[in-house]
């Protein structure tokens, strides 16, 4: 199956997966009801365009994710607004919330490597291609990311939430 055939046959699913990936990497499109300046939509559009130019499905997937990761890594992450939960009005500080908060505190290369390998199940070779890194550098980023994520998560769950006193 060619890449263009894939895009035609499973276009909706493919776009959804790219959108979910971009949202996980950049954060949600709104914070506190306000639309943010995330280049998320543009990144997905770039990804679809890149995939369409490929003749092979596996390569199309790599090119698509590479477009999103490239835009993310080029972005000034310091200017990105804080990530907030869409569920904040009716539920607070679940493990899932704290996990996502901890994830978004990681450095950009750590976030991208974890997302590609752990969540998207890319091989090391493909993830390295997506991030434009040597495999060794990808593994280093992944190892740093796992250590940092563990530390952030422990801080959030046991240093943070467990000390919050809920009042009625």
């Amino acid at each position: 199956m060619s890449a263009s055939a894939l895009l035609q046959q499973d276009h909706g699913e493919f776009v959804t997966s790219l959108t979910n990936f971009a949202e996980a990497l950049f954060g949600p499109p709104t914070v506190g009801g306000q639309e943010t300046a995330y280049p998320r939509g543009k990144a997905v559009a770039d990804a679809i365009s890149a995939a369409s130019a490929s003749q092979e499905v596996g390569q199309a997937r790599i090119l698509a994710y590479r477009a999103i990761v490239g835009r993310f890594l080029r972005a000034s992450v310091d200017s990105l607004p804080p990530m907030a939960s869409e569920r904040q009005d009716h539920l607070a500080l679940t493990d899932a919330d704290l996990t996502i908060v901890a994830f978004h505190q990681l450095a950009p290369f750590e976030k991208a490597s974890l997302l590609l390998v752990v969540v998207e199940n890319f091989s090391y070779a493909d993830a390295a291609t997506v991030m434009d890194l040597e495999v060794g550098s990808l593994i280093d980023a992944l190892a740093r990311g796992r250590e940092a994520f563990a530390a952030r998560l422990a801080c959030s769950k046991f240093g943070g939430r467990s000390h919050l006193r809920i009042v009625g």
């Binding site: 804080p82 009005d89 009716h90 539920l91 607070a92 500080l93 919330d97 809920i166 009625g168």
Partner: peptide
């Protein structure tokens, strides 16, 4: 102090999550 899990005022919860993030 009182209440059940998840009964904190939503403003405080939001502030906590936003501050953490």
């Amino acid at each position: 102090r009182a209440g059940r899990p998840g009964t904190a005022p939503s403003g405080l919860k939001v502030a906590a999550l936003a501050a953490l993030a």
